[in-house]
Amino acid sequence: MNRARIEKFYYLMKLGREFELKAKEHYMLGDIAGFLHLDIGQEAVSVGTMQAFDKGDVFTHYREHVLAIARGMEPKKIMAELFGKKTGISKGKGGSMHLFEPRLNFYGGDAIVAGHLPMAVGCAYARKLQNEKAGVFAIFGDGASNAGAFFESINIASAWKLPLMFFAENNYYAIGTHISWVSPFVDLKEKARNYMPTFTCDGMDVCDVYNTVIKAKEIIENGLGPVFIEAKTYRYEGHSMSDAGKYRSEEEMEIFKRKDPIENLKKKAIKLGLVDEEYFNALDAKVEQVINEAVEFAANSPEPEIEEAFEDVFCKECENAIS
């Protein structure tokens, strides 16, 4: 742990947390609608992975605000997307679940569970063909690890030695279904260990997530085929804003809240004497400013024009040829 790294980790996790708390607030106010899946509690995974896997391609699911922020997407463009505005990262057409930025090699934002995994495999195939060493990162939930697409993907990636990092974000629940009810393993790495090297890390500890991804990344960069990492973590909120999350006990929640990734990083850094409380207060102030600007930007941005509903179905060349 060093000062620069702590700063990065803390700042991004806090930014993610505050971003989502604001998003939740504006959902209640009616500025945001549809499905809003919050990452609160799981920030160490989003930030640790993206800080370590900083090149390559990223495929993710619908719970992706913090991952997108950690990848470098501007919070104000994400907030504007949540508000359904023209200035949003997907022009207000995708919403919370569909954040895309190919310039950052960030390909969604897929809301079909496990639907992004076969695409990640294809992308990894192409990267191998193109001699790109950085490879592909695909993150998915415990629920997704039960889907056929997941098993097909680990098989193909392993058979063809593709540069692909499977990252299982195990928060134990797929909406209201506990992983133990529908899978013979709660430890998801059991599903992959005959196919590729597997790693586990503490999904509530950003440093552990970071270090594990760095270690696993070497295998990919050396062309040795795919890897599988599992992080156990916990979402503090319901599955989405339309779920109260009543199926989980207070005690279970407390176990994880005691391990809160943001609070614990702060405590650890102060205890090690690397930085003091003041240092974090300054970062918090910076976060607050960025979030306020993001909300202001989103609120003041224009709505898309009706015509835009009919654009982007095809590329301009095709549109012209058709019309």
Binding site: A33, G34, E81, G84, K85, S90, G92, K93, G94, G95, H98, E303, P304, I306, E308, A309, F310, V313
Partner: peptide, 16 residues
Amino acid sequence: GEDVPIPYNRKLELST
């Protein structure tokens, strides 16, 4: 319904 995927923005959504 219009021949486009369904957009997120409410105004656009209703337009489809």
